Simulated assay, not measured.
Amino acid sequence: MHDLVSCMHELRFGRSPATMALVPHGGGAGGSATMAMPMLTADNYTVWAIKAQAILDVHTVWEAVAPGDAAVNARKDKMVCALLLGALPEDVLLQVSAKLTAREVWDSLKVRFVGADRVRAASLGTLRGEFDRMKMADGEELDVYGGRLAAMAARYANLGETLDDAALVKKLLDTVPDRLFPVVAGIKQFHDVTTMAFDEALGRLRAFDERVRRRGQDGGGRGGEQLLMTAAQWAARESTRRCSGRRRRAQRGVGERRQQAQALLQVRGARALPGTQQRGICVYRV
């Protein structure tokens, strides 16, 4: 318990346990700064870890948790230990109070909420299945769905895996509704989706979706019409077009033959040449 008491002396009493006054290492013209550490709960570890790391990093004490090859500054280590302990619920605090360093406290929390390697592998498999099943729901806003995909990347990172932009872009383009298919086809045809940033793909889809919505609200032109045909629709259309063409050509040929016969019969002064009416053939001479 001596280590716990030593760490807790770094807190400024009289404040909420989640709000502490930090003094940057080495002093500084700005003096002390007040920064709120989020409280850890049973289901917010991913978000809590991101916020906690940002707060520790802005005060240049994150190196106490991830020192690399450098030696850990003792004052920074105590500062981080105090901040972490002050953001823990009582049951978790009692479990990590025997840890000697801030690195040990952080790793203990990670093992508790993320799990050991075996649990991590199982969690990662569950997460992959959840990612594979993701799709944009009916009526869901594009920004909301993009946020769900980005959150999935953060969950992957928390398990030590990387969900890169290529996987996110592919998932985004493959699971958006049919109304966005024209722009999806354009992106895949004219851009390299393996190197495209996720934010860029989301921005292109958002711009197209906004134009379609605006045209629909204005009642303009072909906003609600079908832009592309299925293979069956295209084949039926071509078959109808060919049949219509044949009928028009047949009707034109009949009309031409009728006109020729009428012109031949109306020739004035025509008479049959003698000896030529053979085998149903009649030759006229003007």
Rank of each mutant, 00 (worst) to 15 (best):
Q189A: 12
K188C: 09
L227H: 07
D218K: 05
F181A: 13
D209G: 07
F198S: 00
V193K: 00
G203T: 12
G219D: 05
M229P: 06
I187Y: 02
T195F: 01
F181S: 10
M196A: 04
F198R: 01
G223L: 03
G224S: 11
E200C: 01
Q189K: 10
L205W: 09
F198C: 01
D178S: 13
T194W: 03
V184R: 03
E210T: 15
R215G: 07
A185Q: 13
Q217S: 09
V212S: 00
R179S: 11
Q217L: 11
T195D: 02
G220T: 14
G224Y: 14
R204M: 15
F208W: 14
F208N: 15
G221Y: 07
D209H: 04
V183M: 08
T194P: 00
R179L: 07
F208Y: 15
L180D: 09
A185D: 07
G223M: 05
D218C: 03
R213N: 15
L180A: 02
G224F: 15
V183H: 00
V212L: 14
G216H: 01
F181C: 08
R214K: 15
P177F: 13
R179T: 09
V184D: 09
V184P: 01
T194L: 01
A207R: 10
R215Q: 12
E210R: 14
R206S: 14
E200A: 10
L228Y: 09
G220Q: 15
G203V: 06
Q226I: 03
L205N: 07
G186S: 15
Q217N: 12
L228I: 06
V183E: 07
L228D: 04
P182H: 11
G220D: 13
A207F: 07
P177S: 11
F190E: 07
D192N: 10
K188E: 12
E200H: 08
R213K: 14
R222P: 02
V184C: 04
G219I: 05
F181P: 00
P177Q: 10
M196Q: 00
R214I: 05
H191E: 10
T194Q: 03
P182F: 04
A185H: 07
E210L: 14
A207I: 13
D209A: 05
A201G: 04
M196L: 13
M196D: 03
L228K: 02
A207P: 01
R179H: 08
R213G: 05
R179G: 10
G203C: 09
L228C: 03
R215P: 01
R206H: 12
L202S: 06
D199P: 02
V212N: 01
H191K: 09
R222E: 09
E225G: 06
Q226F: 01
D199I: 05
M196H: 01
I187M: 06
A185C: 08
L227M: 09
E210Y: 05
D192G: 02
G216E: 15
Q189P: 02
V183S: 02
R222I: 08
D192Q: 07
A185F: 12
Q217A: 12
G216Q: 15
M229C: 07
